[in-house]
Design a protein around this nucleic acid. Structure first.
Lengths: 143, 143
DNA sequence: TACTAATTTGCAATAATGTTGCAAAAAAAA
DNA sequence: TTTTTTTTGCAACATTATTGCAAATTAGTA
């Protein structure tokens, strides 16, 4: 049994009660370095918790800025851990997201910022998101 | 009654049978310069057609390259007209998408290409999508 | 530790969204 | 007009997400 309390720390720091389901779900994100869908979480947590609890936990994490939504081109809803200093109600997920067409894993490229783009006259930008699809590092090297 | 046959031309050019529902849906896209969700189409076409027909029509348009999916940060599935020369199975929707936080309209900025980004070693990009949110031209000028 | 107040969870019901098979209707070709 | 092929509508079903409420759990306090 891991004695790490990283998950507990995160929950406490965000003023959340420490519960089993929150710990399990948060640890999934901490261990799996990529974006997770609701279905992934249900699968990996072996249906220990009710679907509704998973939905509500993700919603809570979103609101607290523990995770952010990952943009997608299909209709999938993906969540990923916020790595930098996100605070309640204000995310700093200004990084590029990469989705691998081979292993299907979506990763946050935390160190790659979304580039600025010159918009047509009259448009005022507030936030930009970017998704790049292709072959990821792991899949490329394993060929 | 408009005598324009732009919609018919598009359908013919793509080898599709010309039917009422396809014409109505296609004209929605032609008139409304922005991305539409399935629900929008159901609403604007006054439930003239079955839900299933709308789904199948959108699927057909997607396959033929008449519309493309618009990336989103929530789980919405949005479709927008392909403006440039998309052919069956190969889209050229390499443009930036803009979603207005005020009127909620999603537009294709057809003339703004998604910029190149330098990725970490090992990642091979195939396609890039970009979504910018903010205040659009119309909403800004009406304040 | 035991008690209390507030939060969280599970269950059941419901809503919203999307898919499939098949017969009837419509479109295109002969 | 007739025939062939495609499309549509209906019904049923599947998946994904939301809500209310009582029971269980958490955290603070005595």
């Amino acid at each position: 049994m891991s004695s790490s309390t990283a998950d507990i720390d995160i929950l406490r720091k965000n003023g959340l009660h420490v519960t089993d389901s929150r710990r399990v779900i948060l640890n999934l994100f901490l261990k799996y370095d990529g974006a997770l869908a609701h279905a992934d979480i249900e699968k990996y947590s072996s249906s220990l918790y009710d679907r509704v609890t998973v939905y509500r936990t993700l919603q809570t994490f979103l609101e607290k800025g523990i995770v952010h939504l990952v943009p997608t081109v299909d209709n999938a809803t993906l969540y990923a851990l916020c790595k930098h200093n996100c605070i309640e109600g204000h995310h700093y997920d200004n990084h590029v997201h990469f989705i691998c067409s081979h292993c299907n894993k979506t990763s946050c490229l935390d160190d790659i910022d979304v580039p600025e783009v010159k918009l047509p006259r009259g448009f005022r930008p507030l936030h930009a998101a970017m998704i790049i699809s292709g072959i990821c590092k792991m899949c490329k090297s394993s060929n």
